[in-house]
Design a protein around this nucleic acid. Structure first.
Lengths: 343, 343
DNA sequence: AGCCTATTTTGAAACGTTTCGTCACACTCT
DNA sequence: AGAGTGTGACGAAACGTTTCAAAATAGGCT
């Protein structure tokens, strides 16, 4: 059961392989007579060109790689959806890798992608330094998604994390909360840091202190939300509102709240970064800062295509290489005015 | 900035490319002296072999494709995780495609995968017939995941859907429910059909009638869970328990329940197929039938490897080509005894 | 020393495409 | 009739590997 090659087609159509190639790629300059013969042969053999061979020759795979830290995080899944959709339209295939929030797996993935000579890669970094180094040294077209190192200048598409956190916190303040806590994410990334800064800014503007006990450091994962949440609730003077910086931490926090039997939003308001299906359909329906995930994927893909073209033509890189998307505050039932008497 | 090839390495080490190839692939039969020279050169150039070229020659890509109907469904995301993990261990890369529950996209994806000459594919079908035809005709190593056509014999790994539904329904019955409804999924798949059959069996054994009004047909998606849920709740004599056949439909159902202001589990119990993070952390904490997603991915990958080997050696296919995984009932707060007085 | 064998090393031919330069052919024009 | 000019078809050389058969070297024996 050998697979058919272009030679088989050529033989059947009684032409040269060059001719077959020409009609397949619609190069023109082939007489109608031969064109028809070739097309018949193509169909008769149900011939599919061998992309490996083609790519080897043309030095282009029409494939991009994307590596994300956690496929089971709906945020990234939605981003990937956006990427896929855009890629399909542009005729690109995508290879998806999950780095599992692990530096060495991320590196391995990047190497694999490189070995396959993908045309470019989209990276939501698990370890900011690693990817940066690896790709920049190899001069690979790439764009960062969601997470970049603070102050990094590389091509990237991210959310306006500062603004999202700022809006969220202001809303909490406007509800009358004075004791507002936050569980922040990994601060080595801009999304962790900017969210903290937005939170701080809002508090300062309102003349509210940023109490050390109310500033808990997590790592974006469920467990840290749960633990830090417990700590917060067990404080002698617990906060009346908590701003959680990622969907998984929010979930952990809710779990802690349930466990301690405190009522949300009656005793404590919760506002989380990242929106998701489930957030809107359980009690309490969660208030969130929604990131435009789908759009982020699309924008990133478009940007990567540009990067690839710049790279191939060896042009100078463009100017504006970072796009910042606006998040949206979605208010539901987990935020309310603070309880009258101190809890 | 050209990339280095094996020729560059050979030149630098003053050996032939055959020798370089031999040391890279640890073929043996290369003197220590040359081995060292080659290794130095390899390192000096930071050389990475070109997998396209290699694969073209050896007729093996060490890559498998996986196409799933919906990446944003946590169920599939978890399965993919399992696949990835197993694949990594076995030295396989994976290309992930999302068919978006769409027949033509599924076909396109399958074609792309074929064009890349992946060694095999894992398919969670959006359209059972399409994938079946395409792959079987092309004689491609493949294993189905989660969804197969009823009565299909191809290699596959699935959950024991009948048993899961049976256990779930029996539990509802044991709580004292008499008016039990179900929202089923797409019946052209075994997982849709078997769940219905399990439900039926449990009811029949208990001598309970299967009322037509209580048997709603959905399509696994959110919207159908929501609509059918509304219909159920608006019945003159609504059910006191509902068995929902997929996570997204369960979510839709909960949304309908919230909208109608009925209390769960006080007025209506809910038990859903598929478990997920969120299910355990909102109120009411959902009772579910959990599928072993991770394991499913791992098993599928292992099975595919076997299929690939069988295929390459042109052996006769093995006997037992379908593995059935046991689901697990996870009882939480959304199931309780029926209300005393008819709602 | 000469011959035979065992071990390293290498040249060259694939793998299945694309593409470039050349060739053959049919026209048109002087 | 012969030269010039397109146009359509093709042969062959890549792309970067692996691999096989053949060449080169080293070693052991009479």
């Amino acid at each position: 059961m050998r697979m058919h090659t272009i030679h088989d087609v050529a033989r059947l159509a009684r032409v040269s392989i060059a001719t077959v190639s020409a009609v397949m790629n619609k190069k023109g300059g082939v007489s109608p007579k031969l064109t028809e013969r070739v097309e018949k042969a193509l169909a008769a053999l149900d011939y599919r060109p061998h992309r490996l061979a083609r790519s080897l020759k043309v030095r282009r795979t029409q494939t991009i790689g994307i590596v994300i830290p956690d496929l089971t995080n709906i945020f990234f899944a939605e981003v990937v959806r956006g990427v896929e959709e855009e890629a399909r339209g542009l005729g690109y295939a995508i290879i998806l890798c999950d780095s599992n929030e692990d530096r060495s797996q991320e590196l391995t993935n990047l190497d694999t992608l490189h070995a396959w000579r993908v045309d470019g890669v989209l990276l939501a970094a698990a370890d900011i330094q690693a990817g940066q180094d690896r790709l920049i040294r190899r001069r690979f077209p790439m764009v960062f998604i969601d997470r970049i190192a603070p102050g990094a200048e590389g091509p990237a598409v991210i959310t306006d994390n500062f603004d999202g956190a700022y809006q969220a916190t202001r809303h909490l303040i406007s509800l009358g909360h004075k004791r507002i806590a936050t569980i922040v994410g990994r601060l080595e990334f801009c999304n962790g840091l900017d969210r903290l800064e937005g939170f701080r800014k809002a508090l300062q503007e309102a003349g509210l202190p940023v109490h050390d006990d109310y500033l808990k450091r997590g790592n974006f994962q469920f467990e840290s939300g749960y633990q830090r949440g417990l700590e917060l609730l067990d404080l002698p003077s617990p906060p009346t509102a908590i701003f959680s910086c990622s969907n998984k931490m929010t979930l952990g926090l809710m779990s802690a709240i349930n466990e301690r039997g405190v009522q949300c939003p009656d005793q404590v308001s919760v506002l989380g970064f990242d929106d998701f299906d489930w957030a809107a359909n359980f009690r309490p329906r969660l208030s969130t800062v929604a990131q435009p995930t789908h759009l982020m994927g699309q924008e990133a893909m478009r940007m990567l295509i540009e990067e690839i073209e710049v790279f191939e033509k060896k042009q100078a890189p463009r100017e504006k290489r970072i796009v910042i998307l606006k998040p949206e505050l979605r208010l539901r039932d987990s935020t309310a005015a603070p309880p009258k008497s101190p809890a």
